[in-house]
Design a protein around this nucleic acid. Structure first.
Length: 478
DNA sequence: ATGTTC
């Protein structure tokens, strides 16, 4: 049980193994597993020598008791013929191209050349991701790409609109801040006693082996928000006209908006099935992360079920977040709106053929479909109604999109600078850090202008009290 | 995004 610290630091990392030439996927995973199971007492230098011997002549280790599986994985990898990409460049629609980084465009071009790809589109908030760019939409035939869905499966937006005049917010800032602090959990924190939810009764939790192992943690994390760009916030929402699906009179209301996903459950499902896909689907290096699962295979069916479970779980988390805060407010919402933006759907293309539409950081925007496109912690978000634009595969952006990486934002901006920006916008922030500074994002108004063909704006949300992950006393502005 | 282990 008690491990000596020195020995842990001598552990080989996956990076070390990549440097030794182990291809990621099965060979890398097997090597890590074997070396950490059987050879931890050997010392780093000897571990490296041993692995170098295996990679130099795997056929000599095929029958080795502990290294045999690694040798076989290396041989299988060498023999696997990569699946060819289409050689011709494929066309797809790009919205707001002038503000999209080249890396995202390069990734989309590769995705379009997959033999299973049928159509694609790039949303105006697009930026580089793993495999498919964030803000990328890809329709495939009978195949699902785990990294086309993304790591945070079923990540979504949820809004409750209350029949409370927006003036309530200014008069009750302190109480609303306390409600957010008491009723939401970010980062590693979870509720002492999670509320029960029927999602935990789903058969997938006992029927799918990889999901079974995640059940306990999923229960602990019910109703939590995670980290990164996730938030729970109070703000005011302006309903522009009476022509909205909620039958709300035009006006200004108090609203609650949340953004989060499927926590560890979705992340681990994504990680596991990506590995399965990479093993089953050898692709050229530049397309490796776009490995797909055929929906006619057992693994493909299993991923589909697990993905849908993770999506419903993310929804359950939002429902509990809103349930807790609604109870504190003591007023039932008069309208609710929710949409996910990291998922794959079975839809029909223009010719009526079934396609699998991956939206990785893209909002469903079929004709009449309502959605929420958030800006940043200090800029407006929008309630939108889809126009059903076929060229965009019935999609729109899922936010403003970053103009700089988290690391870059932390190096570029200062605390006083961010404080000033938030003060000017009249926004209180609990938690967060400079990586989520509004200045690190594209101008949401420009992004909306780039997608006028894709959505109509029916309401505008102004964030006022925002909670994100991070040290709660770090960026409070009052 | 993620108990940061690809």
């Amino acid at each position: 049980m008690k491990k000596n610290k020195k020995r842990t630091s001598a552990k080989l990392s996956s990076n070390d193994l990549v440097k030794l030439g182990f291809p990621s996927g099965k060979p890398l995973g097997t090597a890590l597993n074997i070396v950490h199971t059987y050879y931890t007492d050997l010392g780093k230098k000897h571990q490296i020598e041993l692995l170098q011997d295996v990679i130099a002549a795997p056929d000599q280790y095929e029958l080795h008791t502990t290294l045999g599986p690694l040798a076989l994985a290396l041989i299988a990898h060498k023999e696997a013929e990569p699946i060819a990409l289409k050689s011709e460049k494929q066309n797809y629609a790009v919205y707001g191209a002038e503000a999209i980084e080249q890396g995202a465009i390069d990734q989309m071009e590769i995705a379009m050349r997959l033999p299973v790809a049928r159509a694609g589109a790039l949303m105006p908030d697009a930026h580089q991701g793993y495999g498919l760019p964030v803000g990328g939409v890809l329709a495939t035939h009978n195949a699902v790409i785990p990294y086309g869905v993304g790591v945070d499966i079923g990540c979504r937006m949820s809004m409750s609109i209350y029949d409370i005049h927006s003036g309530y917010l200014e008069k009750n800032r302190e109480q609303l801040k306390k409600m957010l602090t008491d009723s939401t959990r970010f980062g590693n924190a979870s509720f002492k006693r999670p509320m029960d939810h029927e999602i935990m009764e789903r058969p997938e939790f006992s029927e799918i082996p990889v999901v079974r192992e995640l059940k306990d943690r999923a229960f602990q994390q019910l109703g939590t928000s995670g980290g990164g760009n996730h938030f729970v916030e109070f703000g005011t929402v302006e309903i522009h006209d009476a022509d909205n699906v909620f039958d709300l009179p035009a006006g200004k209301y108090l609203a609650l908006l949340s953004h989060s996903g499927s926590r560890r459950l979705g992340a681990n499902i994504a990680g596991y099935y990506t590995k399965v896909a990479i093993d089953a689907c050898p692709l050229p290096k530049e397309a490796k992360h776009l490995a797909w699962l055929d929906l006619d295979t057992e693994a493909g069916q299993e991923y589909w079920l697990a993905m849908n479970l993770a999506g419903d779980y993310a929804s359950a988390c939002h429902h509990q977040i809103h349930e807790r805060l609604t109870a504190k407010l003591g007023e039932a919402p008069m309208a609710k709106i929710e949409n996910h933006h990291n998922f794959a759907w079975k839809e029909q293309d223009a010719s009526g053929k079934e396609v699998i539409v991956h939206r990785k950081g893209a909002t469903p925007a079929g004709k009449g479909v309502m959605g929420i496109i958030p800006g940043t912690m200090a800029t407006p978000g929008f309630i939108v109604r889809g126009k059903g634009e076929a060229a965009a595969i019935n999609s729109a952006s899922h936010g403003a999109g970053r103009v700089m990486s988290r690391t870059q934002a932390i190096q570029t901006f200062s605390q006083p600078q961010m404080r000033k920006y938030l003060q000017k916008a009249g926004v209180d922030v609990i938690g967060s850090g400079l990586d989520e500074a509004p200045m690190a994002y594209k101008d949401i108004h420009q992004v909306m202008a780039s997608q006028q063909e894709l959505v109509d704006v029916t309401g505008t949300f102004y964030p006022k009290i925002v909670r994100m992950n991070g040290d709660a006393k770090y960026i409070e502005v009052d």
